[in-house]
Design a protein around this nucleic acid. Structure first.
Length: 356
DNA sequence: TCTGGGGTCCTAGGACCC
DNA sequence: TCTGGGGTCCTAGGACCC
């Protein structure tokens, strides 16, 4: 029997801040962009549970959070620090794993099949892991355990905050069936609406649907969702996962059509992207820019080079060309982004010369 | 709820080659 | 030339996740 666990850190960014500023603990606190007295453009990244009591949520526009709770503690995002804490957590999690797959800064799947021979053993080991994360690092997490990734993930959502939930193989369908269809992994806002219009309000409704109809309507995604709804997921915990693209994007403080301001942002982001790429040892082939206009419409424009490159200058050059070619003149931009992709790995100086 | 920044995967048409 | 089919690359767009 396969046994898979998902370890998910609770309100991770704010929890990290509470570690180094214990005085904010138990007070409503938010990590996100600067609210600027209610004029800020960003969103709440993470809210602790004290803040959630007032309705503050991640993804909420920061000015709205500020309107609701002016006297909450608003902290800027310190990504490097969270990354450092994440590394500590993940190193610990790995010691419990046959196979380890980090899915984001605060989440990882582990396969524990060979270490835990039954459900009780899995539960015991994960309790121990959870306690160790708390004792050694000082951070709370939630853990979902099941016989596949999908159900482990859904179980961890149920376990939050600071809990553990085990869903046995023969309980999976029942466990999922009562949840609203929008809670199913892979169902976002758009898909939820469509599924609900079809009459599939709960995951159970979707599980009982005719798979042929789902495939006709949603192609291979329909088949996948049908399997998910029935608690089936054969996918493995993926150990060697490679980065496919690196990008930066920036929202202007005010929408702008000023070419100088925009190309300056493009140059800065290109430089950052180039540095990150170098750090990771990649050479890129494709440059993509993202343009978001005032009305939130988005355009992506990309160009493939005839060669692979490691040159940050080249990113800026191509990105600027794309901007000049495609940006509608006079149209105000809210956001601009630069991304590189289609990597080849290079190792060492010698091979680097090939790309220079 | 007028909405950030980091990503991934899928689809689909057209170019181009054999 | 009225015409087949497979494979791969390029580009654009959309949905989703954290």
């Amino acid at each position: 029997m396969r046994l898979i666990a998902l370890i998910d850190m609770d309100y991770f960014f704010v929890a990290c801040e509470e570690l180094r500023h214990p005085e904010i603990k138990s007070r409503p606190a938010v990590v996100g962009s600067d609210p600027k007295q209610g004029e800020g453009r960003g969103v709440v990244m993470t809210a602790n549970y004290a803040a959630r009591k007032f309705g503050l949520r991640s993804g909420m526009p920061i000015y709205l959070a500020y309107r609701i709770k002016k006297d909450a503690i608003y902290l800027p995002v310190d990504f490097d620090y969270y990354e450092e804490m994440s590394k500590k957590v993940m190193a610990l999690v790995k010691t419990y794993a046959d196979k380890f797959e980090q899915v984001s800064i605060d989440e990882a799947f582990i396969d524990i099949s060979s270490r835990a021979k039954d459900y009780d053993a899995a539960l015991e080991q994960m309790r121990k892991l959870k306690q160790e994360v708390k004792d050694k690092i000082g951070l709370p997490c939630s853990i979902g355990i099941s016989t596949n990734k999908l159900v482990a993930k859904m179980a961890s959502d149920d376990a939050k905050p600071d809990g553990i939930k085990l869903v046995k193989e023969d309980e999976a369908k029942e466990f999922l069936s009562k949840k609203p269809v929008g809670d199913l992994y892979g169902v976002g806002r758009k898909m939820r609406k469509v599924l609900e219009d079809f009459g599939y309000k709960s995951v159970g409704d979707l599980a009982k649907a005719n798979p042929v109809v789902l495939v006709e309507r949603f192609k291979s995604y329909g088949a996948e969702l049908y399997n998910y709804a029935n608690g089936r997921d054969e996918s493995e915990v993926q150990e060697n996962w490679e980065v496919k693209s690196i990008g930066r994007e920036r929202t202007f403080e005010r929408d702008t059509s000023d070419r100088y301001e925009i190309t300056k942002a493009i140059r800065e982001m290109s430089k950052e992207v180039g540095e990150e790429m170098k750090r990771q040892g990649f050479a890129f082939k494709v440059v993509t820019i993202k343009l978001r206009y005032s009305n939130f419409e988005e355009n992506l424009k990309s160009r493939s080079l005839t060669h692979r490159s490691v040159d940050p200058e080249e990113i800026a050059q191509v990105a600027t060309q794309l901007f000049d070619k495609y940006a509608e003149t006079g149209e105000e931009l809210r956001k601009v982004g630069v991304r590189v992709s289609n990597f080849a790995k290079y190792k060492g100086q010698k091979r680097m010369a090939e790309y220079a």
